[in-house]
Design a binder for these strands. Structure first.
Lengths: 138, 138
DNA sequence: AATAAGTTTGCAACCCAGTTGCACAAATTA
DNA sequence: TAATTTGTGCAACTGGGTTGCAAACTTATT
């Protein structure tokens, strides 16, 4: 039986090179969204450019989605197999100012808003900044 | 009679230096939010650091608010005199992928969302990306 | 007014995420 | 196998943001 990583790449039509399998494997094991620098650190030694381009390919092919959480470093998290990143499918993201982790609130869809006349929405980004579950206790 | 620029600075308790008056004057004349590089270009020659720190002071004192529109360059727009930048006062921002302008949709408040148990929201950023009024006609 | 303390400004240098060009390697096709 | 396309790795660069430090200016104190 094929590994789910490979299946995912196949579904999204991305050639499963060793590098890509590895990167996607790492990404799918995270409990939060990570950025290029953080991804880089998961490797003993790896080239930034390759990781950068791998992420780019993944975003293009909708294997992962990118999140601008306002920290200056773009974060990435895996999409579901059926995700097409349409505005209607988008969810809210949360950035914790204490632990610095960015998480997908996949259960919270971005609410519909009424744009002014003649405006067209292609994409919506909604990031809530504050204290997460864990950090709000202590 | 005092100029409205000075009044605004007075209200927000910022010492009205020549530089600050000038920067605030420029900012308040914009029809869209501008970033540090764009602000810099409005001067024949000016020091980036000073402008940077002026913007920072303004944000701290809530004379202006910052907008992360996802372009990688933080934009700034003037707050109203009574604005305290609380989550309840926040509005949606719009980034036009054609003209590249970021505008405040001041009439559209950020909708309330129900965060998961124990999460605390300090700030919310909501940016709609698409075509603006003007660019959606042509 | 003269001094001292604090604030603002300007220059230079730096940081870091992201990005590009180019050459080499690997995979695919003819 | 040769030709072509695709992926990888290195080096170097870009650009927005940021910091340290010293000079200029402002404000408070004697």
């Amino acid at each position: 039986m094929k590994k789910s990583i490979d299946k995912s790449l196949e579904i999204k039509k991305v050639k499963p090179t060793a590098m890509r399998q590895l990167v996607l494997d790492i990404l799918s094991k995270q409990d939060h969204a990570i950025g290029l620098p953080e991804l880089e650190m998961q490797f003993a030694q790896a080239d930034r450019t390759t990781l950068y381009r791998t992420l780019k390919t993944f975003v293009d092919k909708k294997v992962i989605h990118s999140i601008d959480d306002g920290t200056g470093t773009i974060k990435y998290a895996v999409c579901t197999d059926t995700c097409h990143c349409n505005p209607s499918e988008l969810h809210v993201h949360f950035y914790c100012i204490k632990c610095g982790k960015t998480t997908c609130l996949t259960d919270i869809p971005i609410p519909d808003i009424q744009l002014p006349e003649n405006y067209f929405a292609e994409n919506i980004n909604m990031v809530v900044k504050g204290l997460c579950d864990r950090c709000n206790r202590g």
